[in-house]
């Protein structure tokens, strides 16, 4: 127990009012629940740059809830336990949007336990930077032809003259046969769902630096005219993530997935966004 300086969750919640930083909570309006399984429950309400904390058994109406035990909660607050590690190890759970919960770290100045060594260590400098570089990509004749096709709502694939496999987006050569691809065929535009990456976690869009909305579905579609691994990679309509069925081929046994069709953008510029997404072809 000497490890946690005798601090209890009660001490941490009671000190929240004094540690509150209105500027850190600006523009945020949410209710956070804390279920400290062996110590009690607290409800933190943040609105209009103000806060209130209540000890209450009733955590209904919370936007997001943290569930953990005293040792873990105290450990994180006094800097002895890494919150991300506790989450990974299942010692801490979050019900609701974890990104919303992460906002709470901005609301308060750090909790310092009485007796905790407050003597500053050496100041270690950390420089935060963003590298931002403009780029220009040459499509080349093959990718260029494919992208131009999208402008007129055609999905083109290139065909290997030896093995006959289709590639879309196309490549100039079939790397397996080591020959130049020559023939073009139009595929789709409808097809069958094969595989979906149901993404709960988004990485930043490298073009804008913005993080896209989650969840989203990155999908592999077997467009009509294609076979085997000739899947086409795009996105699924966001509100249909839970309505589609994946297909598969296992030891020759085919399981068909949902039928999908593209939804074309009105303003097409010859890029991946010319197709907004694919949706169920009902």
């Amino acid at each position: 127990m000497s490890q946690d300086y005798g601090v209890t969750p009660n001490d941490i919640f009671n000190s929240m009012k004094d540690r509150f930083r209105a500027e850190g909570a600006a523009g945020i309006s949410s209710v956070f629940g804390y279920d400290i399984t062996d110590a009690g429950r607290w409800k933190l309400t943040v609105k209009d740059g103000a806060m209130s904390i209540d000890k209450t058994d009733d955590l209904s109406g919370c936007d997001v809830k943290l569930i953990t035990d005293s040792a873990t909660y105290v450990g994180i607050n006094i800097g002895k336990i890494d919150g991300m590690q506790a989450l990974s190890a299942g010692k801490l759970k979050v019900e609701g949007d974890i990104n919303t919960f992460a906002l709470t770290s901005r609301f308060f100045v750090k909790f310092v336990a009485p007796g905790q060594d407050a003597a500053p260590e050496q100041e270690l400098l950390v420089l935060k930077k963003v590298i931002s570089v403009k780029q220009r990509f040459a499509t080349g004749p093959v990718m260029g032809k494919f992208l131009k096709g999208l402008k007129v709502q055609k999905i083109l694939a290139i065909k290997c003259p030896e093995c006959g496999r289709l590639q879309s987006p196309p490549r100039e050569a079939c790397a397996i046969c080591r020959v130049k691809n020559t023939d073009w065929v139009e595929i789709g535009p409808n097809g069958e769902m094969r595989m979906m990456e149901y993404c709960y976690y988004a990485s930043p869009d490298p073009l804008t630096g913005e993080t896209r909305e989650t969840p989203y579905g990155a999908i592999g579609i077997l467009l009509d005219g294609c076979r085997d691994e000739e899947v086409f990679w795009h996105l699924l309509r966001p509100d249909q993530l839970d309505q589609v069925k994946m297909g598969s081929v296992l030891n020759g046994k085919v399981t068909h997935g949902s039928r999908l069709r593209p939804v074309w953008a009105d303003n097409r510029t010859g890029g991946i966004s010319d197709i907004k997404y694919f949706e169920i072809d009902a």
Partner: peptide
């Protein structure tokens, strides 16, 4: 035939952090 060739504008934007370490920090502070 280069009639299908064109150029797409792009951007690479990535945040990063540099830790100066003890020696570098002592020098600067």
């Amino acid at each position: 035939d280069t009639s299908d060739c064109y150029v797409v504008e792009g951007k690479l934007a990535l945040p990063y952090t540099y830790f100066a370490g003890r020696v570098g920090s002592t020098f600067i502070t």
